[in-house]
Design a protein around this nucleic acid. Structure first.
Length: 897
DNA sequence: GTTGTGGGAACAAAA
C-alpha cells in the first residue's frame, strides 16, 4: 500500500534554486486543494491522504519541471509523500520513492508516450492520421500474432498459415501474395521460436501474452506484448544490430514496467525482441545472434516516463499543439518530416521541422481548430467514463448499469481463430447497458488491479457469454469506453481540410451553391417529391440533401437512387451511423433486385440476413481485394468508413442515411471518400449522440440544409400514420407540410387489422388517446404508470391486436425495465425506437410534478415517439406536469381533443 | 441529470 496525495492546483511557485545542507537544489511549491470527491478520489489499492482545505506540496529535483508546464486548476498527484510540520501546518514533499503525476485523469496510451519520446510533434501527427495501410505494418501485426500463438503453445507452421490468411484482404489491397508473406513472416518468427525454445529448455520461463494494463495512479493504459517471469517483453519486427535497444522501445517497455510495479511486483528487466536479428545479422560489436535484448530498468527510467507523460498531459489539458521544440527531436532523420511540414504549412502552425505550402483559408483553419477542440473535449468525456472503472465501487457501477458483477464463472472452450469462448452465470438476474456485440472488459472481479481481458459479448442474459484472446475466469463485465470514434472523427476533419478538394470545400464552407446538371427522368411515378429526390441525386454535381420525415419512404427512395446511379456507371458508398441503418438500406436495395453489394463490418455488427454480402478479411488476398474493388456498391458504418481498408477505396457518390444523427466529422469520414454526396435525414428527429456540449451536436445535414435550401428536397407524403396521428407532428415540426400520401393512409385505423373499436372502452375509441394514471416518478421509473400501461396493453390484446403489433416507448431505461416486467410486447426507449413503427404505440412519459431534464427538453425526441404509430397512439402521463410546458400543453390539447 | 452506436489494441522504418 502506498499513500497518495491528490488535489487540484491552486497556485504554483517556482522552480527556484535553494541552498540546502546537501548543497544547491531545485524546488517548486504547489498549493493544492485536497479532499473534494472529484479531485480526491484515489485508486482503491492506494491509501488516499485526506486534508481539509489547502495544503502545500514541495517537489524537488527533476520533478520541478512539472511546475513549468502545470497551470492552476490542473490535478496533481504525489505518491508516497514525506510529511513535515512547518509552522504548525502539515506539508508534503517528494522523497526518493515519490512520483509526481499531473492530470492523472487524462489517460495516455503507452504507444503515445513512445511517439512523444521520439518527437512530441510525431505524437500529434499520429492523432491526425492513423497508421495507414502499409505492408510493414500488416506484416508487423502478423508477426505479433504469431508470437502470441507461440506463447500459447501453437505450432509455428499452423499459426503462420492461419494468421496470414486472416490478413488476406489487407494483403490483397497491397498487392501481396500469400506465399511471399508467409516466407517473410517465417523468417521473423523462426528467430523468436529459436529464442523461445532456449527458455523452455531451462524451464524457468513463465509466460503471459497480450497483457492489458490500466494505471489509475499514472494515467496510463496499454497492452504489453508479453510478460516473461513478470517482466515486460516487447516485440519489434525491425532490425537492431546495435548493443542497446532503441531508446523509445525501452520507454515502451518501461511504461509497462511502471504499471506492473504499481501492482506491487518489482520489475528490473525489460526485453526487446528484434525479430529481424537473425544469424545473418550478427551483431558486429558483440557477435550476438539472439534477437532478444535485455536491459535493466529502474527508478530513473520510470521517472523519465512519468515526466514525459506529465508534459504530454499538461499540453493536452491546455489544448496546445506540440511544435517539436518540447523535446530534443532531430528532424533531419525523421520519416515524418514531410507530413509534419505539410501540416504546419497548411494549418499555419509553428513547428520545429518548418513548413511547406501555403496555409488554407482562415475560415478553414478556424474550422479545424474548433472541431479539433470539440473532439478533444469529447475525448475527455470518454476518459471520464474510463476513470469510473476505478473511481466507482463495483456496486456503484452495477447500480448505474455500467457493469455486471458477482457473476459465477462457468467455464471456457477454445474456438476458431485461436480465441476462447467464456461463460458465466448471472444469478442475480441484474441488467445493464451491455449488449450482444459490444466490446467489454471481462475481469476476475477488479478490471484495474486484477486480471482483465477485452472481450466481445455474445450473450447477456441469465448466462453471459463472451469471446476473448486469452482466457480469464471472469466474474465481472464492464462497459469499455473506447476512443475509436473520437480518433476517427479527428482523422476525418484532418482529411477533409488538408486532403479535400477545393470544390468540395467551397461547398462545405458556403462559398459556392451546389450545382446540378443533367436531364430529368421519371424514376418514381407516383410520388413527385421522391421522384424529385432521385433526379436531384442523379444530376447533382456536388451534393443533395434529402429531408425525409417519418414514414415518407426515404429508404425506398434512396434504394431507387442508388440503382439509378449504378445504372449510370457510378460507384456508390452507402453509409449510416448504425449497423442497423446500413442493413435496413441494403434490405431495401435487395428487395429492388439489386445485389452487387459488398458489406464491410464486423461479424457481430452485420445483421444475419446480410452476412452473405459481408466481406471477410480472411481469405485469398487477390480474391478478397478483387471482391471489394469490383463491387459497385460498398456499404459500411461511418466509423468503418474511417478504417484503413475503406480509406483505400474511392467512390463517385457517397450516400449517407440517418445523416441527422451524425456529427459533422463522422459524416466527413464517409463523404471524404467520394466526389459527390447525398445526405438523407430528418433534423426534426434525434440529433447526434455526444457527451460534450459543442458543435458536434449539430449534424452536417442540418447545417447544409439551412445553408442550401435549394439543394434540398422534402419528402412530404407519409405512408405511415392516419391524419389524426400525424397532425401534431406535421404542424409542430414540418410547418404543416407533411401530409398523408393518399386517402387510404389518412383514413387507416385498427379496423384494418380486423379489430373493432366497439370492443375497446369508450375512452380508447379515438386514434389518439391520453391517459393520466396519477402515478409518481421514482427515480427514472413510475411503477403506477407501468401498471396502467400493462392494463392498456391487455385491452388491445383482448380486442384482438397481435402482440407483435404493439410497442411501448418510455424515455428511460429504468421505466423500460419496469414495463418489460409486466408485458410481453416490445418495450424500448425512444432512441432505440427511431426508424421503426408499430400499429399501436403506447408512450410512457414517467415525469410527474415537473418536466426537468434534457430528455424532455429536446422536443425532437417526442416527435420520434409520436410518429411510430400506424393505427393508434396512447399517451400515458401526468397531465398537470405535461401542461406546465407550452409544447407539451399543445400536445395534450391535441391528444385530448 | 439522460438518451445512444461505434469497435477492442497495437501493428514499421532508422542516423
Amino acid at each position: 500500500m502506498t499513500a497518495t496525495l491528490r488535489g487540484s492546483i491552486v497556485s504554483i511557485d517556482g522552480p527556484k534554486t535553494v541552498q540546502t545542507t546537501y548543497g544547491e537544489r531545485e524546488l517548486a511549491e504547489f498549493t493544492l486543494r485536497v479532499g473534494d470527491r472529484h479531485t480526491g478520489a484515489a485508486a482503491p489499492y492506494d491509501e488516499p491522504i485526506s486534508v481539509a482545505g489547502l495544503t502545500t506540496v514541495t517537489v524537488w529535483g527533476k520533478w520541478t519541471e512539472t511546475a513549468q508546464y502545470a497551470t492552476e486548476g490542473m490535478e496533481l498527484l504525489l505518491t508516497d509523500p514525506a510529511e513535515d510540520t512547518f509552522q504548525g501546518e502539515t506539508t508534503y514533499s517528494t522523497q526518493k520513492s515519490s512520483y509526481v503525476v499531473l492530470e492523472p485523469g487524462f489517460l495516455v496510451n503507452v504507444t503515445d508516450i513512445r511517439s512523444w519520446v521520439q518527437c512530441p510533434r510525431e505524437y500529434y501527427l499520429n492523432k491526425l492520421s492513423s497508421i495507414p495501410l502499409k505492408y510493414p505494418v500488416i506484416k508487423g501485426t502478423i508477426v505479433h500474432e504469431v508470437f502470441s500463438d507461440l506463447l500459447r503453445g501453437r505450432s509455428l507452421a499452423e499459426s503462420i498459415d492461419d494468421r496470414v490468411e486472416e490478413a488476406g484482404l489487407e494483403l490483397g489491397l497491397l498487392g501481396y501474395e500469400t506465399d511471399e508473406v508467409k516466407n517473410e513472416v517465417r523468417r521473423n518468427a523462426a528467430s523468436i521460436e529459436g529464442w523461445l525454445s532456449q527458455g523452455t529448455l531451462t524451464g524457468e520461463d513463465d509466460w503471459r501474452s497480450e497483457y492489458t494494463l490500466i494505471s489509475p495512479t499514472f494515467g496510463l493504459k496499454g497492452r504489453a506484448d508479453a510478460l516473461r517471469r513478470g517482466m515486460p517483453v516487447e516485440l519489434k519486427t525491425g532490425k537492431n544490430t546495435r548493443r542497446e535497444p532503441r531508446f523509445h522501445d525501452k520507454i515502451q517497455a518501461a511504461c509497462y514496467g511502471l504499471m506492473l510495479e504499481e501492482r506491487g511486483v518489482p520489475v528490473n528487466t525489460g526485453t526487446l525482441l528484434y525479430t529481424k536479428n537473425t544469424a545473418l545479422e550478427r551483431n558486429e560489436e558483440t557477435g550476438d545472434l539472439s534477437p532478444a535484448k535485455e536491459f535493466s530498468m529502474g527508478r530513473g527510467l520510470f521517472e523519465y516516463v512519468v515526466r514525459c507523460r506529465n508534459h504530454l498531459a499538461a499540453l493536452e489539458a491546455r489544448g496546445e499543439i506540440p511544435t517539436g521544440y518540447e523535446a530534443d527531436a532531430k528532424c533531419e532523420y525523421c520519416f515524418s518530416q514531410d507530413a509534419c511540414m505539410v501540416v504546419s504549412g497548411r494549418l499555419a502552425q509553428e513547428s520545429k521541422a518548418g513548413a511547406i505550402g501555403t496555409p488554407v483559408p482562415e475560415d478553414e483553419q478556424a474550422y479545424f481548430e474548433r472541431f479539433y477542440n470539440a473532439i478533444e473535449e469529447e475525448r475527455r468525456t470518454v476518459h471520464t467514463a474510463y476513470r469510473k472503472l476505478w473511481e466507482q465501487t463495483a456496486t456503484e457501477r452495477a447500480a448505474e448499469d455500467r457493469a455486471l458483477i458477482d457473476l459465477s464463472y462457468a467455464g471456457r472452450e477454445p474456438i476458431e481463430e485461436n480465441r476462447w469462448r467464456l461463460t458465466a452465470r448471472n444469478e442475480s438476474g441484474a441488467v445493464s447497458k451491455l449488449r450482444p456485440g459490444d466490446v467489454a472488459l471481462a475481469s476476475d472481479g477488479d478490471p484495474v488491479t486484477g486480471h482483465a481481458e477485452l472481450c466481445r459479448i455474445e450473450e447477456v442474459g441469465d448466462t453471459v457469454v463472451v469471446t476473448t484472446d486469452e482466457p480469464v475466469a471472469f466474474t465481472r463485465l464492464d462497459i469499455y469506453p473506447s476512443e475509436i470514434s473520437v480518433d476517427r472523427m479527428l482523422e476525418a476533419v484532418h482529411d477533409a481540410i488538408l486532403k479535400g478538394s477545393t470544390d468540395r470545400k467551397d461547398v462545405l464552407f458556403g462559398r459556392r451553391d451546389p450545382a446540378f446538371d443533367g436531364n430529368h427522368e421519371t424514376y418514381i411515378d407516383n410520388n413527385d417529391a421522391q421522384n424529385k429526390a432521385v433526379n436531384m441525386g442523379v444530376t447533382a454535381q456536388d451534393c443533395v440533401l434529402i429531408h425525409g420525415p417519418p414514414g415518407t419512404g426515404k429508404t425506398y427512395t434512396i434504394a431507387r437512387l442508388v440503382r439509378a446511379l449504378v445504372d449510370r456507371g457510378d460507384r456508390v458508398l452507402v453509409s449510416a451511423f448504425t449497423n442497423r441503418a446500413v442493413d435496413n438500406l441494403l434490405e431495401a436495395l435487395r428487395s429492388q433486385g439489386f445485389e452487387d453489394i459488398v458489406r464491410i463490418g464486423t461479424a457481430s455488427g452485420v445483421r444475419s440476413d446480410m452476412q452473405d454480402l459481408r466481406l471477410s478479411r480472411r481469405g485469398n488476398p487477390n480474391q478478397q481485394a478483387a471482391t471489394l474493388r469490383d463491387a459497385s456498391v460498398v456499404a459500411a458504418t461511418t466509423t468503418s468508413c474511417g478504417s484503413r481498408i475503406c480509406k483505400e477505396e474511392s467512390f463517385d457518390v457517397a450516400l449517407v442515411d440517418e445523416a441527422s444523427q451524425l456529427t459533422e466529422p463522422a459524416t466527413l469520414a464517409a463523404i471524404n471518400l467520394a466526389d459527390r454526396f447525398v445526405l438523407v435525414g430528418d433534423h426534426e428527429q434525434l440529433p447526434p449522440v455526444v457527451r460534450s456540449e459543442n458543435e458536434l451536436q449539430t449534424s452536417l445535414f442540418e447545417r447544409l440544409i439551412e445553408t442550401y435550401p435549394d439543394a434540398s428536397v422534402l419528402l412530404d407524403r407519409q405512408y405511415r400514420m392516419p391524419q389524426r396521428i400525424q397532425a401534431f407532428s406535421s404542424s409542430e415540426f414540418y410547418d404543416g407540410k407533411l401530409r398523408p400520401a393518399n386517402g387510404a393512409v389518412a383514413a387507416q385505423s385498427l379496423a384494418d387489422l380486423g379489430v373493432s373499436y366497439a370492443t375497446l372502452p369508450e375512452q380508447f375509441r379515438d386514434q389518439v388517446v391520453f391517459i393520466d394514471p396519477d402515478g409518481t416518478r421514482q427515480g427514472n421509473a413510475n411503477p403506477i404508470e407501468a401498471d396502467r400501461i400493462q392494463s392498456i396493453v391487455e385491452l388491445y390484446l383482448d380486442a384482438g391486436v397481435e402482440p407483435a403489433d404493439i410497442g411501448v416507448i418510455a424515455p428511460f431505461r429504468a421505466q423500460v425495465a419496469e414495463i418489460s416486467n409486466r408485458v410481453d410486447v416490445t418495450v424500448d426507449t425512444v432512441d432505440r425506437f427511431q426508424g421503426s413503427s408499430k400499429a399501436v404505440i403506447i408512450v410512457s412519459f414517467v415525469a410527474t410534478g415537473s418536466l426537468d431534464g434534457p430528455l424532455f427538453e429536446d422536443y425532437r425526441r417526442i416527435n420520434v415517439a409520436l410518429t411510430r404509430a400506424k393505427k393508434s397512439l396512447v399517451l400515458v402521463g401526468d397531465e398537470d406536469a405535461l401542461r406546465s410546458d407550452p409544447f407539451y400543453d399543445r400536445m395534450c390539447t391535441w391528444a385530448t381533443r
